[in-house]
Simulated assay, not measured.
Amino acid sequence: MAFHDALFQLGMDLDRGSSTAQTEEKHALVVTHTDGEDRKDYFCERNGVRFAGTHLLVDVLNGTRLDDIDHIEQTFRRCIEVSGATLLHIHLHHFTPNGGVSGVAVLSESHISIHSWPEYGYAALDLFMCGHAKPHLAIEVLREAFEPDEIIVKEILRGQEAATQMKLAA
């Protein structure tokens, strides 16, 4: 029971009739694969490589408004919209006294997260999305929102090993 109470406090109540469960059922996606295979695994394929999803590690250097929790939430919402992802929940926390923000937007396609150090103008963000979502489109939104001197983006195609093992098992 304590487990379910903790999930409820985080906005992640999992009972079938809950708003969370209804949202997740409402936004369930069926991915059509070009190879004619009927799969519901949400894996991606790009240039012949099959993988679970695109994970972008984003460093914002000398950015602004990294302590503005409302601005960060709106930025997350714009990132989700331009990426073609589906929002389930946003949870952000404001730290004092430095004003940093830590939080996550939980998506049907995975998540966007942030941890900011406004006193240094630095933020570390993760954008991890599977299926048809396009996380790269969110980079320009981040650039406009935080006006950094520089954004560093590293891409990891997650789950390539799992996709390879699935092919071998098939």
Rank of each mutant, 00 (worst) to 15 (best):
L92D: 09
L142V: 06
A138I: 01
D126V: 06
H136P: 01
S116V: 05
I114L: 13
T86N: 12
H71V: 00
P97F: 02
N62E: 15
L125N: 06
S116G: 10
Y120V: 01
G103N: 07
G103S: 09
M129T: 05
S110A: 14
F95G: 12
T64E: 15
M129H: 05
T75Q: 05
S113N: 13
F128N: 11
T75L: 05
Q74L: 09
H111N: 13
N98W: 12
G103D: 07
L66T: 03
F146T: 00
T86L: 08
H93M: 06
G103K: 08
F95A: 13
G121I: 05
L127S: 08
N62R: 12
E140Q: 13
G100F: 12
L142N: 03
I69Q: 04
G131P: 07
R65Q: 11
H115G: 12
E119F: 11
F146V: 02
D126I: 06
E144K: 11
R143K: 14
V101H: 03
L142I: 15
L127W: 05
H93C: 03
H93S: 11
I112C: 07
P135A: 05
I114S: 06
R78V: 02
I114K: 05
G63C: 06
A138V: 00
V106R: 10
H115C: 10
G84M: 08
I80P: 01
Q74G: 03
I112L: 15
E140L: 05
R143S: 12
W117I: 10
G131H: 11
I80K: 02
P97L: 05
V104E: 09
I114E: 08
R78E: 15
L127N: 02
H132P: 03
C130I: 04
C130S: 15
D67C: 08
G99E: 06
L127V: 12
F76T: 03
A133R: 01
L125E: 04
H89A: 14
V141C: 03
F146D: 02
A124L: 13
L61M: 13
H136R: 11
L125I: 10
P97H: 04
D126H: 13
S110E: 15
A124Y: 15
P118R: 04
A138D: 00
F146M: 03
T86H: 15
E140A: 14
L66H: 06
V101K: 02
R78H: 05
I72R: 08
H71Q: 01
H89E: 14
H132D: 15
S102V: 12
V106K: 10
L107S: 10
G100R: 10
R65D: 14
V106P: 00
S113I: 02
E140K: 10
H94L: 13
S102Y: 09
H71K: 03
S116Y: 09
S83K: 00
L88Y: 14
L137Q: 07
C79N: 11
D68H: 12
D70R: 09
L88I: 15
Y120A: 11
Y120C: 07
V141W: 00
R65A: 15
R65F: 11
P135H: 05
Y120G: 07
Q74V: 00
F128W: 06
A138G: 02
H94W: 04
I139C: 00
E144P: 01
T64A: 15
Q74A: 14
A105I: 00
S116Q: 08
H115Q: 12
I90H: 01
E73I: 03
G103I: 07
R78D: 09
V101A: 02
T86R: 14
L66F: 08
S83V: 01
L92F: 15
